[in-house]
Design a binder for these strands. Structure first.
Length: 222
DNA sequence: GGCCAGGTCAAAG
DNA sequence: CTTTGACATGGC
């Protein structure tokens, strides 16, 4: 890892342009995990409505989620979309926490990262991005999160070839310092860049104002 | 009205 | 191992 590589310089440029993004100011690690599931392919504004509803009904807790009926849970999280699937996923997550961890999340996060990651991935409804988001933002473990924006941006910068999650994760991990706040901030900045400058529709790509314009190799997306 | 959003899974080539 | 369809609401 050298301080002059593109992967690291991109982080510096993005932070300089956009500033800290202040992601995931959840009041608890469990709330953060709930948000990670509810935000799957969904706008965060919709997730906020669902989390607020859960909180106001005192269901923002693994035991309370298990105690709730499917109908009640689905109703509370409906604004976040895919509400039947996500209600099921929240119950599976809660079951794991209650049954495997006795309700104590630290039991999970204190384990070796790969073991904790595998444990999360064993839950139906938790894939690589959700697992890694949980490890990074709730567990504060140094795991680089890859999402659709990161894949698209990395492709345009010529950083990755295949567009696979694992490859992108390896490359980002190898080229930035192992630092939890940096990982948290970099991921949030990539999402910010993706939303505002690197959209799927090429006609909407505002490459002229893009902070990484000079590094961008193509207008095309993978 | 159409596109998109801080993905994942099962089924199929 | 890669691709495809289903899942669903709300904002612009």
């Amino acid at each position: 890892m050298v301080a002059s590589n593109l992967v690291y310089r991109a982080y510096v440029m993005l932070l300089d342009r956009f500033g800290p993004q202040g992601w995931w100011p959840a009041e608890s690690d469990f709330e953060m995990m709930v948000g990670a599931i509810l935000t799957q392919n969904t706008a965060w504004s919709n997730v906020e409505k669902a989390i607020t509803a859960l909180r106001e009904n005192s269901r923002l807790d693994p035991f309370e989620i298990l105690a709730a009926s499917d109908e009640e849970l689905e109703h509370l999280i409906r604004p976040s979309g895919y509400y039947r699937q996500k209600a099921d996923r929240l119950k599976r997550l809660s079951s794991m926490i209650v049954e495997d961890l006795e309700g104590d999340l630290d039991t999970l996060f204190e384990r070796p990262v790969l073991a904790a990651r595998d444990h999360l991935l064993s839950i139906k409804g938790i894939g690589p991005e959700t697992a890694d988001s949980i490890l990074l933002y709730a567990g504060r473990r140094p795991v680089f999160v890859i999402d659709a924006y990161t894949l698209r941006i990395a492709g345009r910068l010529g950083i990755t070839q295949t567009g696979s999650y694992a490859q992108a994760q390896r490359i980002f991990t190898r080229n930035v310092p192992v630092d939890v706040p940096l990982y948290q901030e970099y991921h949030a900045l990539l999402v910010k860049l993706g939303k505002d400058y690197c959209r799927k529709d090429r006609n909407r790509c505002r490459c002229a104002d893009c902070p990484l314009e000079a590094q961008c190799e193509t207008d095309l997306l993978s």
